[in-house]
Amino acid sequence: PPHSTALPSHFMKGAIIQLATGELKRVEDLQTQDFLRSAEVSGGLKIDSSTVVDIQENQWPGFVTLHFIVGEQQSKVCLDVPPEHPFFVYGQGWSSCNPRQTAQLFALPCHRLQVGDVCISISLQSVV
């Protein structure tokens, strides 16, 4: 079964996030550009576009299974997460399967994550 640990507190509204540029921002103030710029200067990491193609109830209570198509290679990746887990959607910001629960737990304003949303994810930069 997936780990049923609580989500880390970096999703809590007001949490201080350090960008790769050294700049500090609150988690709720982050924008798409912050992630893109951070990946640019971090070296070794790259941002992928991960499109949500399916959201399913999980066999384990309290979890949902998200299906993504990731990056240029269009790889299929599944992720088991609690419904309150926030993902950063391009041009939209924080989004979760259950925004109400996210607000209760983290006070983080969220949109509802939907099939077709394009999330920000990271992977290792391939060395050519």
Binding site: D34, D48, S75, L79, F87, F88
Partner: peptide
């Protein structure tokens, strides 16, 4: 005297999932 409180700072990459595409053959 008030003890200074330390504030946790989290790295940006801890906020987004690491979704590694499987390597092509």
């Amino acid at each position: 005297n008030v003890e200074p409180r330390s504030v946790a700072v989290f790295p940006w990459h801890s906020l987004v999932p690491f979704l590694a595409p499987s390597q092509p053959d």
